[in-house]
Design a protein around this nucleic acid. Structure first.
Lengths: 216, 216
DNA sequence: ACAGCCATGTAAGTCGTTACATGATTGC
DNA sequence: GCAATCATGTAACGACTTACATGGCTGT
């Protein structure tokens, strides 16, 4: 349940509307934590009931209103509480790796297609995060400047450095995925060569086992 | 929704009870896809209604029964359909990285504690997956042997190679996390030296911004 | 007039977690 | 008798996704 903490942390930089927060989630980095807008609006209302944020309503056109959210003292306290709490990293759950475990049920070309998709995706992700880390290092994002503006001078280096470290880490992660996919493509080539007869046919179709003795 | 496919793939190796499947999820690797037992039992019943697996009931004690599940032909078909489908990798969602982004709100020692926890966790994960990859390479797990036993000889290399590639990839991932945490610890040392006065006090407390102009 | 972005939501459904509950078998 | 492991579930809740719905403003 870290969405709420991501929201509180973003509001520490400056007050924002739900829409602006949703954009930060998409842009400020295909964020470390992804969320769709309905969940964000819902969570903001919950945070408001809990007194962790306050809303300022402003008219929008004739019949509509917009709501800017502000961080409150209890919201800050919750942010610090969460930060101090040591929690187990979430368990692995990766559809791409799960699927790759069973590539023998498809053709070599299918395996190639999956690895190529993985490769392209993570090349894009790597470029995105790498660029974001560079931007943070130059202190060149609107949000970071807002953050630094109300922070004491002696904290500036740490504020920037931790964020850069996170996005460099994500870049490195993406690079690891790229290498995995590249090695996957090499593996498929090797398997196809070794198989002798290449082609677009399945290596092997799954066979439903029936009535076999249990024997753990 | 890949839990169902993980289950179908496991049942391709051999028929299993819900309990045995749950253990595979914990052991066969703190699996690529983690799941708790209530979800597994529920999903198996759903798969049964959908005709993708069949259950064989056996008495257990006086009043209880156990159910062994078998993969059916429609289940195999679904496995192949899923495998052929190219899907976007799930979005990033990492609480540890999210938290690290805001380490400036805590003390240097708190940041160290988090990085050390990360380090120890992923060292264990690395060892676990590395050992599992080795075991697979030696064809030395009960489940893999069952799989190979009913697969054509020419497919054996591919069956083993894809699985080894997955677990080597996971090992490499864990190593990347270990490096990130190590560099994080170095970063904290550097920041503390640069700050001059070390200690267990916060670098900076979050300040709730109030009534600031919007200026996107 | 229409497209495209700004802006806010509801409702329904799925996926996943946690707590609770029960009972069997094996070995000390 | 008790603990550990085998074995199967239900119920309640919380997190997340998807589809739907509405309306405003700006520029062509």
């Amino acid at each position: 349940m870290s969405l709420r903490h991501a929201l509180l942390a973003l509001l520490e930089a400056r007050p924002m509307t739900g829409y602006e927060l949703a954009k930060q989630f998409d842009v400020s980095a295909a964020y470390v934590w992804h969320a769709h807008h309905p969940q964000i609006y819902t969570e903001l209302r919950r945070l408001e009931s809990a007194g962790m944020v306050e809303a300022e309503e402003a008219p929008r056109g004739i019949a509509a209103t917009k709501r800017r959210y502000f961080l409150t003292d209890p919201g800050c306290a919750e942010l610090l509480r969460w930060l101090a709490e040591v929690s187990e990293p979430g368990r692995e759950r990766d559809a791409a790796y799960l699927k790759a475990t069973y590539f023998e049920f498809g053709s070599f070309d299918l395996a190639r297609e999956h690895f190529r998709g993985h490769l392209e995706h993570y090349r894009r992700v790597e470029a995105h995060w790498s660029a974001h880390a560079d931007q943070l290092e130059r202190r060149d994002t609107a949000l970071l400047r807002r953050r630094l503006a109300h922070a004491p001078q002696h904290a500036h280096d740490a504020i920037v450095a931790y964020k850069v470290h996170v996005y460099r880490g994500l870049t490195e992660r993406a690079r690891t995925e790229v290498r995995w996919a590249e090695q996957g493509l090499e593996l498929v080539d090797r398997l196809e060569r070794d198989a002798g007869i290449p082609g677009d046919t399945s290596v092997y179709r799954p066979t439903p086992p029936r009535d076999q003795p249990s024997a753990s």
